[in-house]
């Protein structure tokens, strides 16, 4: 079997943590995998991947043109030399291109593991990651036109990724017609790691024996990731933030958000929050 499993999430929802777990599970080594060697596959928006497969520069294309070409790039992974199952991180929302086909390509996609985290905790984490105020992060999470790598005046190393609002992002993936999707809550990765990570491994067709899962969980625990970052740094950390692996907790919003900020997030996202157990009643 060949194809792509997407590791999909809104930013700051545990994607890197999950990838660290997967790498350790695959590696099954004596020591934790280096966080700077988490080679689970390119992020879907990696310009280098697209350029290499296309044979011409996405730098010379508009974001709209790039978007229309992306499904063909992912589809190519089915027939490329050494084709295998790939696990690729993606932050784009699940959308259709101008040609009406899924951005991620229906044919290329084996399934999507969708990571969801309480938006009350996403907001302060995203503010730190995006180097903006919490207010601004909340505004972005509520902005239907929110996109990453949006510059049209310079060349980011990733192509533009449309996220939509936080709620739209969640719904785009979990309600995508015909998509095999497994939803994993960040809070369950923390609170009930063994069943949660085992379910993730099962969905992705990876080994599930208990000893191996436990070791991979241990080798990718927050303390281990933070220890490695403190020692050697982490190349995915944005330059202006102090640490990538900041707290790795849930519920911190209680001390980090004002009542008004909480209210605003709930106003924006109540329906989806309720659906995934982030809001009582």
């Amino acid at each position: 079997m060949v194809g792509i499993y997407w590791l999909a999430s809104y930013p700051k929802s545990g994607n890197t943590w999950l990838r660290a777990f997967l790498r350790n599970l695959q590696e099954d080594g004596e020591a934790p995998v280096d966080i700077n060697e988490l080679r689970t596959g390119n992020i879907a928006s990696a310009r280098g991947w697209l350029d290499q497969v296309l044979g011409f520069d996405t730098a010379e294309l508009t974001p709209e043109e790039v978007e229309r070409l992306r499904p063909a790039v992912y589809r190519w992974s089915l027939q490329d030399e050494g084709a295998a199952i790939g696990y690729h991180k993606i932050h784009d929302a699940y959308t259709l291109t101008a040609d009406g086909e899924p951005l991620v390509s229906r044919e290329a996609t084996l399934g999507a593991l969708y990571l969801i985290r309480n938006p009350l905790d996403v907001a302060p984490s995203a503010a730190n990651h995006w180097h903006c105020t919490v207010e601004e992060a909340i505004a972005r999470m509520g902005n239907p036109r929110m996109a990453l790598a949006k510059s049209r005046r310079a060349l980011p190393s990733q192509v533009q990724q449309c996220l939509g609002t936080w709620s739209e992002h969640v719904r785009s993936w979990v309600e995508a017609p015909g998509l095999r999707v497994k939803i994993i809550r960040f809070e369950d990765m923390l609170g009930a790691p063994r069943p949660t990570f085992t379910a993730a491994a099962a969905f992705l067709g990876l080994p599930q024996d208990a000893a191996r899962i436990d070791k991979a969980i241990r080798f990718s625990a927050f303390g281990e990731l933070a220890r490695q970052e403190a020692q050697r740094g982490f190349h995915e950390r944005p330059q202006h933030t102090e640490r990538f692996f900041r707290r790795g907790r849930s519920g911190d919003w209680r001390t980090q958000l004002t009542a008004g900020q909480v209210e605003r997030i709930i106003d924006d996202h109540a329906e989806v929050m309720r659906r995934f157990g982030y809001l009582d009643a």
């Binding site: 497969v53 296309l54 044979g55 229309r68 070409l69 063909a72 790039v73 190519w76």
Partner: peptide, 20 residues
């Protein structure tokens, strides 16, 4: 041989399509 969705290469020729 096809080397990409829009790319073919033979010993003496290269075919490339930039859609649209």
């Amino acid at each position: 041989r096809q080397r990409g969705p829009f790319l073919w290469v033979s010993p003496r020729a290269l075919w490339l399509r930039v859609p649209r």
